[in-house]
Amino acid sequence: MIALNGETISIVLFFVGVYGLIARRNIIKSIMSISIMQVAIILYFVSTNVAPGSVPPIGDVNQMLLAADPLPQALMITDIVIGIGVTAAGLTLFIHLYHRFGSTNWQKVMKKRNRHD
């Protein structure tokens, strides 16, 4: 029996995102899949090295209490910012792409692009 915790859920979520990338032709859905993968990674990191009953590593933690590992949580602040930047840039690029090629389908856009060559 695999335990239902943050790590297993995040691995499942990650591959849900990968499935979306492989199986969906829609560009917006591709960008959404990347966001899902990012969320999975964040969930994985924040749930690593957390013992049951530990407290968040913020402020003056009582020495008697067990605090969670602060490093992955600090890393994830950076990754959340990167994730937002990536999604925003991806959507901006998509708007430009849509204006020029008039489609949200990867296949159709690729065909139109190759006609330019």
């Binding site: 990650f14 995102g17 990338l21 560009i27 591709s30 960008i31 990347i34 993968m37 990012q38 999975a40 990674i41 994985y44 990754d79 990536v86 840039a89 991806g90 690029l93 998509f94 430009h96 792409l97 020029r100 090629f101 856009v109 690729m110 692009r113 330019h116 060559d117």
Partner: peptide
């Protein structure tokens, strides 16, 4: 140029996907 939007989009999304694997 019109075609390069597609090239840039491909480059961007594929590299982001790869780096997600790296981070995992």
């Amino acid at each position: 140029a019109s075609v390069s939007v597609y090239d840039a989009m491909m480059y961007f999304l594929i590299n982001v996907v790869a780096m997600s694997f790296f981070l995992m």
